[in-house]
Write a protein that binds this DNA or RNA. Sequence first.
DNA 1: AGCAGCGGCCTTTTT
DNA 2: GGCCGCTGCT
Length: 733
Amino acid sequence: MADLLNELNPQQQKAVAAPPGPILVLAGPGSGKTRVLTYRIAYLIAALNVPARQIMAVTFTNKAAREMGHRVEGLLGEKTNGLWLGTFHAICGRILRREAAHLPVDSNFVIYDADDQTALIKRVIQEKVFNSKDYNPNQVLSRISNAKNDLLGPEDYPVESYRDETIQAIYAAYQAYLVASNAMDFDDMLRYTAHLLETQPEIREKYAHRFQHILVDEFQDTNQAQYNLLYHLASHHRNLFVVGDEDQSIYRWRGADYRNVERFAENFPQRTTILLEQNYRSTQTILDTAVSVINENPHRTEKKLFTARGTGKPATAYEALDDHDEAAYVVDTIVTQVRQGQAKESDFAIMYRTNAQSRLLEEAFRRANMSYRLVGAQRFYGRREVKDMIAFLRVIYNPKDEVSLARVINLPARGIGAVTVDNLQKCAQGAGLSSGEVLLSLSDGGSNALEERLGSAAARLRPFSMLLADWRGQLDQRSLTALFDQVLLDTGYEAYIKADSDELQDRWANVMELRGVLLEYEALGLGVFLEAMALVADQDTLPDTIDAPTLLTLHAAKGLEFPQVFIVGLDEHYLPHSRSRDDEEALAEERRLFYVGITRAEDRLYLVRALRRRSPYGSYENMLPSRFLSDIPEALLNGRFTRENGWGKGYDVDQFQWDRPYGSSTQKKAPKPPEKRAQRFYPDMLVEHPVYGEGVVRNSRLEYGDETVEVYFDGLGLKALVASLSSLEIKET
DNA sequence: AGCAGCGGCCTTTTT
DNA sequence: GGCCGCTGCT
């Protein structure tokens, strides 16, 4: 074990070998946070002989958990049986299923994801609210989510207005539906666990005694519920080892509160605080760039970040003509370096503020015939066909699941329309049952009363009710994949999904891929499979084996590192995002997001913006450079950013329709005149540009009343030019 | 009941 | 530009 400590710097050693007790590690980016956590776990097991089963380590992503597990096993040279290592939600799931007797749901509860929540809240709003149009489902959900993160139930929901009263009523009904569906959402998992530990002393004692040591990663991003449950879990041994960095707190919108760091200091006055300031990841120039950005944030304890990695190259500043050009620049830079053998594809990451920004990049990569890894954005599990099949399995597993039942009851269409569904739901409500239970009882012809109440709906529902009962009967008799195949067969889902012509056969391939995943859970059972489906995000399933650049949001980039990093979309309204414009705290968080992005880079950083880009609503808009760019000293940049948009037009905030609350249509944009211009440029034409010189047209398209021409210039690569503005001359056709 | 066509509305980030 | 929900036709 002694040699284990030798691999660490003095500060890291101090943290890893700290005597038991509350420990707060404040760690700058790239300072070996994960390393400290893994070594600490190994140290506890190997040096202090703490049984692995008495250690709990909490991370924010499954990927981080998995990695940490591997690393600990690597250090110890053996399996760590009994160690509780996982995300907050996974660990809560484990506790909640064991302690379901104390919950309003049973241990077969299902977890509702964002889509399920939206479906349910829409239904509640429709049913409960007179002027349902005034209540945006996502807004209401976020209010409910905030309340839950603060451990407030419907009855505690703060009411200051009539609108609040309505939201409170929606919250109450939403919660009642969840319970009736034997379901909970992500926030409930934390809230129920915190509540259990707080109100059930024997449960609290059980876990607080068991877990001698609790370790937490990304502590700055914990919310109130998470803090509370940690506090209770650590209430007996008080060995709480937390690692965090307030400058990397980027989940405030999800209830995260970096003041939990202060709270920790207050609740555990005898804590040890350790600072990790040496960076092992980036060049000094990259660190300086990051610091110049983050230093502008108020109320933070300044850290001196230093590295032994040398000065390095200044960040490249690139100002693209438009968003197409931006994507072309990124791909081109990567292609050039790869071709010249200076780098390999997987060295690169491209980061952006919103998922939607990946589209143009993906297209550019595809055009260049280069593969890429796209993190998140519901790549697989968000697909309709995948969610459909999971919904079937969920209803079979838990027939009370109203949201999943509503999704599949008429899928593919089997003559059960809105009226029939409505009848079923009313009947169920009248009988104090769930819709699924009514269906099951219908299938065995048990209750005449129910049948009578259903009336004509009974006949329409019977075939599906028989199917459902049949599937349920098979649940314990046959393998999961056999059941899956049976559902496909009975529903004719294959023909249905293949009939959807526009997306080729991909959809069916996804269904089969899901079947492949299910195969891995044969031994573990449907419940484990469904929980994994709910809690395992797409980014956790990415094969990191392929040699390709990674596309990801700035949020998803936290905790990762790459030799070369592009941060694109460095324009006002994107970073900082326009939704944060009027809120100082939110703006500070946008800045931290930028900081997180910069500090992912090991060797090279590219800061990219575009003079004009497509707004979320379709039209093209002139952009202003991100305010954060002006905080970076020019000496740290190779290249520079203009201070105004490049189109001579004055910048006018009001031209951004996505800034204005919808509904206030005072300045409805005049529809663009459908000015039809003839296309002048075609692929392979030889053209001359006053600045770039001679080039070959790769592609050209008419859009938004103008012609966008992609021209390949020797030595410069691909440029996207706007024909009417760039005085391109045709030299040869 | 189901489908096509249309208009309004919307997009931040994720376990 | 794209989704979703509504409407009106079959």
